[in-house]
Amino acid sequence: MSTQFEVVVDIDRPIENVFAYLADGRHDPEFSPRVLRIDKSPDGDTRVGTVFHSTVKDAGMRSRRDFEISELSAPHRIRWHEVSHNSVTAGEGGYDLEPTADGGTRVRLFNVLEGHGLGKALLPLAGSAARKDAPAFARRIKTAVEASA
């Protein structure tokens, strides 16, 4: 059982800059208030196999989330999947980037959420909340990336 959300946003920065920013998941707390802490292993450049270990707060509860980079095709595509075991996980997620005519970048973000055990009952609520927040999430990404330059 799964559900998906996605959102598209235009960012006023060159595609290479946007890709570099988004590929470093340690920036996630700058646009995702649910991320309380995030670390990366191994150190160094992000590559396939890099894992971002985060502590997040969802619905008032803290949980550990570990996301592994499964594809990295600079500067157009980033894919991840959650390797932690929670009730609701992101089985697949990613960014698709394309340059815009004015020198900016169009970013499509998506996550495929999966329910496990009790999470199967929570999945419709989690998916609805993610879809509802998606436009604001896109605006927060835009603001964070543009401020980072």
Rank of each mutant, 00 (worst) to 15 (best):
residue 47 R to Y: 01
residue 42 P to L: 10
residue 86 N to Y: 06
residue 123 L to G: 04
residue 69 I to N: 00
residue 88 V to E: 06
residue 53 H to A: 08
residue 61 M to A: 15
residue 94 G to R: 04
residue 115 G to E: 01
residue 39 D to T: 15
residue 40 K to G: 14
residue 70 S to D: 09
residue 37 R to S: 15
residue 73 S to G: 11
residue 91 G to R: 11
residue 57 K to I: 13
residue 48 V to N: 05
residue 43 D to L: 09
residue 119 G to H: 00
residue 124 P to F: 03
residue 54 S to K: 10
residue 108 R to G: 00
residue 118 L to C: 09
residue 71 E to S: 12
residue 121 A to I: 11
residue 84 S to T: 10
residue 94 G to L: 11
residue 96 D to A: 07
residue 45 D to S: 11
residue 45 D to P: 13
residue 81 H to C: 15
residue 86 N to K: 07
residue 81 H to F: 14
residue 31 F to Y: 15
residue 111 N to V: 01
residue 70 S to M: 05
residue 81 H to R: 12
residue 118 L to V: 10
residue 44 G to F: 04
residue 36 L to C: 09
residue 53 H to V: 03
residue 120 K to I: 11
residue 75 P to T: 03
residue 113 L to A: 00
residue 61 M to N: 12
residue 86 N to V: 04
residue 114 E to G: 01
residue 89 T to M: 07
residue 42 P to S: 14
residue 66 D to P: 01
residue 70 S to Q: 03
residue 91 G to P: 08
residue 98 E to D: 05
residue 120 K to L: 15
residue 84 S to R: 04
residue 123 L to M: 01
residue 27 H to A: 08
residue 93 G to A: 11
residue 70 S to C: 12
residue 118 L to H: 08
residue 40 K to F: 06
residue 93 G to K: 05
residue 104 G to Q: 09
residue 46 T to N: 03
residue 54 S to V: 10
residue 114 E to K: 08
residue 55 T to K: 13
residue 68 E to G: 11
residue 61 M to C: 06
residue 74 A to G: 08
residue 81 H to W: 08
residue 73 S to N: 13
residue 77 R to N: 02
residue 115 G to D: 03
residue 57 K to M: 14
residue 71 E to K: 12
residue 72 L to Q: 06
residue 61 M to R: 15
residue 44 G to C: 14
residue 28 D to W: 05
residue 68 E to D: 03
residue 97 L to N: 02
residue 104 G to Y: 02
residue 36 L to S: 09
residue 49 G to R: 04
residue 100 T to C: 01
residue 68 E to W: 09
residue 51 V to E: 09
residue 64 R to I: 02
residue 29 P to L: 03
residue 116 H to G: 02
residue 27 H to L: 09
residue 98 E to H: 06
residue 86 N to Q: 09
residue 35 V to M: 08
residue 77 R to G: 00
residue 87 S to P: 07
residue 57 K to H: 13
residue 33 P to C: 05
residue 48 V to Q: 07
residue 27 H to C: 12
residue 69 I to L: 05
residue 108 R to H: 06
residue 27 H to S: 10
residue 28 D to L: 05
residue 95 Y to D: 05
residue 58 D to S: 15
residue 52 F to I: 08
residue 80 W to N: 14
residue 71 E to N: 12
residue 110 F to S: 02
residue 54 S to A: 13
residue 47 R to L: 01
residue 102 D to H: 01
residue 104 G to V: 02
residue 76 H to L: 05
residue 50 T to S: 07
residue 65 R to L: 13
residue 116 H to T: 02
residue 31 F to C: 14
residue 35 V to A: 07
residue 57 K to W: 10
residue 106 R to D: 11
residue 61 M to I: 12
residue 78 I to N: 03
residue 112 V to W: 06
residue 28 D to A: 04
residue 30 E to R: 15
residue 101 A to Y: 00
residue 97 L to G: 00
residue 79 R to K: 13
residue 120 K to C: 11
residue 118 L to Y: 06
residue 42 P to E: 04
residue 48 V to A: 07
residue 56 V to F: 04
residue 109 L to V: 07
residue 79 R to I: 00
residue 48 V to T: 12
residue 106 R to V: 10
residue 65 R to D: 07
residue 63 S to P: 07
residue 94 G to Y: 04
residue 49 G to P: 02
residue 42 P to C: 10
residue 41 S to C: 08
residue 124 P to I: 09
residue 54 S to Q: 14
residue 88 V to N: 06
